[in-house]
Nucleic acid binder design. Structure first.
Lengths: 196, 196
DNA sequence: AGTTGGGAATAGACCGGTCGGTCTAGAGGA
DNA sequence: TCCTCTAGACCGACCGGTCTATTCCCAACT
């Protein structure tokens, strides 16, 4: 396989399909066999590339985080916008992504809820992901604070965590209702308060 | 079994144990066998009282909702307090309950995330539960609005949904971190804004 | 250039264990 | 007697994971 080849590798196809299936089914309800039937990939290939179902799911989370970081780069990195609007843009992008996927919510929230009672590995993994996202948002809120564009008197880090937590809650409700309403309502409320 | 008997019935014991185990393990990871081992109840009894695992879980949710309604009665029904404080009291009670259970979050949020992609039955069931809770909170916010104690200009129903959604998000984060921080931060933020 | 050696990847039959659920038998009380 | 409930052996299906065989591709060697 030459590096410049456009061919999609077996491993990538598995991660790609796994992303969608984990988002819909969650971890326990996703069978390896179902994944293989959907992709037409034999079991030998799966266990060649991944040591176990858990290893696979953890790598799917990594892949999901790549997408998240791309979204963060696109929004928070847009220095033409004031910092608070950059933060909001990130969540607007996420909402648009949820729409494309049929309002199934956020993979981190889904796996976090399902597995954090049962697997310390996943609990720490997911919490680590949330931490990374919150850190990047914090940086942006920090900038807003320095420019005097932040109304609230709380620490940027706490405001970032709060925003992320509430977003996940709205994403759950959006998943239950299969509509974007809760996401928009949450964003409107938060930014109306946060903006000076 | 006489009605006035204080004896705990087999069915009640199953529902009670199921509540705790579903909260920790979720639906798919909870095995009937594990439930029976924990309670010492034979399988025949289980399937005498419940037609299936799904039927069982749905009844566990009903039982959970009984507790929620008790909490709502205790807090929202306390007319010595102004309505907004009654609403806050409900969530303070919930936070205390979560603490007792080891910060495993909310059963509705957990099952909602896990199953709403896979089972329309559960999706509608859980969304129905959230609706009921939101309605009761709405009534209380309505009263606050009429007394001019509500700062926000939004509809009480939307404020109630927002509060509930954000709470569920904070509960997920609390489950991941095994601490109450996110719950308190979310309440402080919301009520600082909502109160006039 | 042609041959070949060997690791990477594919292929799927197969495995023990566990799953939710059924069935028959018996215990207990009214 | 009769019905509710307990009791647990048993069932087929499916689970995640293993194993061996085969194919593929490219590098190394003559």
């Amino acid at each position: 396989m030459t590096p410049e080849s456009q061919e999609i590798t077996t491993k990538e196809r598995l991660l790609e399909a796994g992303l969608g299936m984990l988002l819909k089914h969650g971890y326990s309800d996703l069978g390896i066999q179902a994944l293989l039937s959907e992709t037409g990939i034999p079991k030998g290939s799966f266990y060649h590339h991944f040591s176990s179902k858990q290893d696979f799911a953890l790598q799917v989370v990594d892949r999901y985080m790549q997408e998240v970081h791309q979204g963060l780069d696109m929004s928070l990195g847009n220095h033409a916008l004031p910092p608070l609007e950059r933060v909001r843009l990130f969540f607007e992008l996420s909402r648009e992504k949820y729409r494309r996927e049929g309002y199934l919510g956020c993979l981190l929230g889904g796996l976090g809820q399902e597995l954090s009672g049962v697997s310390e590995t996943f609990r720490h993994k997911i919490e680590g992901c949330f931490n990374l996202i919150a850190e990047r948002i914090t940086d942006c809120l920090e900038e807003a604070h320095q420019r005097g564009e932040l109304a609230a008197d709380q620490e940027p880090r706490q405001l970032a965590d709060l925003l992320l937590d509430c977003w996940e809650g709205a994403a759950l409700r959006s998943r239950l209702r299969r509509d974007p309403g809760p996401l928009g309502a949450m964003l409107d409320f938060y930014f109306a308060v946060a903006a000076r």
